[in-house]
């Protein structure tokens, strides 16, 4: 695994990572019931903004893609499009057990069960559904990971695109997202960095 190479960082990278972790903007994809836990997390009671985490509107602006709940086959398409539109470094956070193993929709014919087969998930927030305390604690560990330079799952999407693409195609055939992910990886030097 490339884990070792990735953690070898220059001082500049370390400084940058420690600044970057202070500002995380979140795009929340709210299909499931879990979204109801987000308002208290953002507002006066728990105040997410004190960690520099803010909700944002469009994928171009966001750093975190928060999937709050089950994903049907139809919505997964949108999520993949949105994920590919985001600007790297980007972190997918699976929220609630639906994203981990399908949760209560385990035997539904139209939902997907494990999100990490389709997108590189940075971390999961377990629970049905996780309370604001759990969300805050989860985000804090994400912040730590970014600071240490360990949150690199987004590179995996470029490196192992065939794996994700195969699983995506298996669910809904070919989709036109106007993105050539491997070419992007080469253009921005993400694939070279690994070698």
């Amino acid at each position: 695994m490339a884990e070792k190479e990735l953690t070898q960082r220059t001082a500049w990278d370390k400084v940058l990572a420690n600044l970057r972790k202070r500002s995380l903007w979140m795009l929340h994809y709210c299909t499931g019931c879990g979204a109801v836990e987000l308002p208290p997390t953002m507002t006066s009671r728990f105040d997410m903004e004190r960690f520099g985490i803010m909700p944002m509107v469009t994928p171009r602006q966001a750093d975190i893609l928060l999937i709050t709940g089950y994903l049907s086959v139809k919505t997964l398409k949108r999520v993949i499009l949105i994920y590919e539109q985001m600007v790297a470094p980007k972190y997918v956070v699976g929220f609630g057990s639906c994203t981990i193993n399908g949760g209560m929709y385990w035997n539904s014919y139209t939902t997907i069960k494990a999100l990490d087969r389709y997108l590189p998930v940075e971390m999961y927030l377990a629970g049905c559904m996780p309370r604001p305390e759990a969300i805050i604690s989860g985000f804090n560990s994400l912040i730590d990971k970014i600071g240490k330079g360990e949150a690199n799952s987004w590179k995996d999407y470029y490196e192992n695109y065939e794996f994700y693409k195969k699983n995506q195609d298996h669910v809904f055939g070919d989709i036109e997202t106007h993105h050539d992910v491997p070419a992007d990886g080469r253009y921005f030097g993400i694939l070279e960095a690994k070698r």
Partner: peptide, 20 residues
Amino acid sequence: GGKRRIVSQYDNYAAGHFLN
């Protein structure tokens, strides 16, 4: 700032809608 890449006009935010 980092490198940038010019994308197709259909690669655009439309709230998850596929543009063509």
